[in-house]
Design a protein around this nucleic acid. Structure first.
Lengths: 337, 337
DNA sequence: TCTCTCAGCGCAATCGATTGCGCTACCTGC
DNA sequence: GCAGGTAGCGCAATCGATTGCGCTGAGAGA
């Protein structure tokens, strides 16, 4: 863009060799140079407005100081907090973040992965959690660093940071049971995601333990539309059956709201609904949504921490970190009629 | 990360010079090489799994194929669609996007700007719209390329892509007036933003034209909390005065919801409220929010288009693009009592 | 006074790709 | 058969910073 000041410019102005300037400006190597010289060079560098060229440095050091973040869709409200969590950890440490959206398309995911590789990212944070992501496991042997966040993938040799899904579902069920509900429905997310599997299993297990009637419907996506159509289908088959719905996430729960409303059913008077995620503005919905809060910002921070550990050469293996969740009771759950 | 295949590796395998491989693999220079050789080299490159090193290329070509996006806060729901719009235009053209959040802190914005410069970004898309951003105008003479999006800054020599704020406010007022409202309140965003200024002026102008009673309160931020406290203050001073509130954006409108609810006032029965932005889930609020829809995704696309034009050497000057808005009528507005 | 040591700094290779320049064939036209 | 032209490709510089190695000179020790 503008005619930039280079190391060589500073060196010339200071009457020294570029190598000396490089060493003077770097914390690590600063002690290899006379203190007096360091001060002089630093002053001249500042006067000339020298800024290092990260690209050139990256070429030589084989580090781009960049992390690639692969996620399904940034407009899904759980991802912005994750990204900001990642940012908050990485930026102060000199790293930048390259975010890409896959829209759930595995072939696009592969393509984006490759393009991030071309950009020499130092590591990946992957939030798509597709089983297809397992193909990325192949790269593990090539020394590629990655961390999964939000969703885990079975058998993948990378660390993962997830929320305590099982506990979240248990809290939801116990809450609903304490309100007198007996007949439960779970809208499960699509197969192939760890979140879907774990939440479904927790639903079944906890309902059995408490002696509750349990039914599960699989949705086609974690979206409002999928939630609505799944609930529509359920209500067609079993009108006025379940009084408690545990949704796979908040978007599905919102779909349930829509379905109920269109049929003249009231939430929570007729049907209680619990979401999962505690997305932004869940408190402003109609009715305010009872949901399981998952600490997305912190998950981002942890994922960033793990990827940097790997980059710094610490072998952590497929470590799994599970962050605690909590139930946020609002207006979408009430005592069973 | 892994032992990567370089241009030299391909050259050796093909028995030619690296320069020839480079020319063969590049669309532009391909015709400088014998078709037969090109085919052979391409095949070998694929077999070896060669992927170009974007960093090395960037050093030589002085282009990083990266655009820096500076915004206040990714968790503000208007920004994800903008970012996705930018992405959708840039990615297919080989560019990547580096997103940073300023949290409204001008000194942080300056620091992030510099760090993006160090990373040799080819251009900036700036969504913060602070008047302080004007300091970036200094760089204009140094050949820095930038586009403003969402908010413009007066007198800045860069192009800008914004929504038609004035028309949006007019539509809101006409809608409310047609419902019989006479006394209007506008919660204006903080001073210093083009959006605040334009929307306030449009509010005043249109109220005057229609002979409506108009009052404006400035908020301290475009946030739910700021909206709530501003509305609280207003209601303390003028209980039961205005029946129509035009909020500076949806978050402020949500703050108005909260304020009304805590005082036992009903929306829309007692007070009608209109937001601005039509953020995600505005339809799921309590009540569903009447608001002005602004095409954020498209704004991102346009901003991306303009920055690429500049990079490709097209002098567009401080061109201003204004995208049309529309009023989405939902449940937060009703006939005046 | 002479050697030895080491702090301080210069030299030049290196990272991987791009590109202006020029060389070598071969081909054409006369 | 020769000058002129051109296609195809190699050579080497270049982008800007980093870094192993080695040189120089000053200070220390004998």
């Amino acid at each position: 863009m503008r005619e930039r000041v280079t190391l060589a410019d500073v060196a010339k102005a200071a009457g020294v060799h570029p190598g000396t300037v490089s060493r003077s400006l770097n914390e690590e190597t600063e002690k290899q140079v006379n203190q007096e010289t360091v001060r002089k060079i630093r002053k001249i560098a500042k006067k000339l407005g020298y800024t290092p060229n990260t690209v050139a440095r990256g070429l030589r050091t084989r580090k781009s100081m960049t992390i690639g973040v692969i996620l399904p869709d940034l407009t899904n409200p759980i991802f912005p907090p994750i990204v900001r969590g990642i940012d908050s950890y990485l930026l102060p440490r000199g790293y930048s973040v390259l975010v890409v959206n896959t829209d759930g398309d595995p072939s696009l995911e592969k393509k984006l992965f490759d393009s991030l590789m071309e950009r020499q990212v130092d590591g990946f944070i992957i939030a798509t959690g597709r089983s297809d992501t397992a193909s990325i496991a192949e790269y593990h042997d090539h020394g590629i660093k990655a961390v999964l966040v939000n969703r885990d993938v079975a058998g993948i040799p990378f660390p993962a940071v997830t929320a305590d899904d099982a506990t979240g579902i248990r809290l939801a069920i116990e809450h609903l049971a304490s309100l007198g509900h007996k007949k439960f429905l779970h809208l499960s997310g699509p197969a192939g995601f760890s979140t879907s599997r774990i939440r479904s299993k927790a639903f079944t297990d906890n309902c059995k333990k408490l002696g509750l009637h349990a039914r599960i419907i699989k949705t086609t996506a974690y979206s409002v539309e999928a939630g609505q159509s799944a609930m529509d289908k359920y209500l067609d088959l079993h009108p006025q059956d379940a009084t408690a719905v545990v949704a796979g996430n908040d978007l599905l729960a919102l779909g349930v709201y829509h379905s109920l409303r269109l049929r003249g059913l009231r939430c929570p008077e007729d049907v209680s609904v619990v979401g999962f995620n505690n997305m932004s503005f869940a408190n402003d919905f109609q009715p305010p949504m009872t949901t399981v809060h998952a600490p997305y910002f912190e998950m981002g921070v942890e994922a960033a921490r793990l990827i940097l550990s790997q980059i710094e050469g610490i072998e952590i293996g497929p470590m799994k970190i599970t962050l605690p969740v909590s139930l946020v009771v609002r207006g979408s759950t009430a005592r069973s009629a």
